[in-house]
Amino acid sequence: MTWSVFPTVFAVSAGLWSVAVAGVYLARLKPRAEIMSHLFFWAGMAVLTVFILGLWGSLDRPPMRTLGETRLWYGFFMPLIGYLTWRRWQLNWVLAYSILMAIVFLGINVLNPDVHDRALMPALQSIWFVPHVIVYIFAYALLAVSAIVAVKALYEGRSGRFRMKTLTLADNMVYIGFAFLTLGLIFGAIWGKEAWGHYWNWDPKEVWALLTWIVYLAYIHIRAHRSELVRPAMWTLALAFIVLLVCWFGVNYLPSAQDSIHTY
């Protein structure tokens, strides 16, 4: 199986997943629709799995060497993580959100077939690359939501309509997001050991990833200890996302990043 059949695979998987998402929301009206969601979700995963295995067979190596192949794995794991989070926390929108991200990643491969050949440098050809990136993407996605929730809570507080539910949602997003941030940091460290000889090199990206991690750590401790300090906690959460954005996009523009291994 080669990339030539991928547009069909994409259309079928994306269609099945979309029905699954629709089912999740329909289940509010008709609880039995949820069974349909599970079925369609796993059918979508099965189609994509068959394609990945087929591609693996035809390439005679794990499809993990080009940009397009990497996106394929994002599109595979993102819905799985979203599904797991949805099952655990009954957060319907997380499933919808992660499936939307998967469709975007896989859609790029359909619209821009060139990425199939885009070379990955040897250091990136590691089994840790995909897990490292995928948990970070998921963590960032959830923490982005937590920042929006923080702004919402601040607005609610200002307009006198503060709801406890908003706060609970923010906490929930941070706990899940922080768990994935920790996974990303450690996967990166283990990969660093295999590729560059050491698990921690104080590379600017590492430094900012650590900073991001610490700021969310601070949020968790403020919330756990002084739950009445809502406003400082929400400001911390909004600020934490700025640190996260610097880590994600901004690092390359900092003077400290001249020799970073994370600039490509």
Binding site: W89, Y175, I176, F178, A179, T182, I220
Partner: peptide, 19 residues
Amino acid sequence: FIMMLLGAVYLFWLGKEIG
């Protein structure tokens, strides 16, 4: 690392409850 990985899974699974 292994302890923190397990701890992260714990955070994910019990997040709201711990909070």
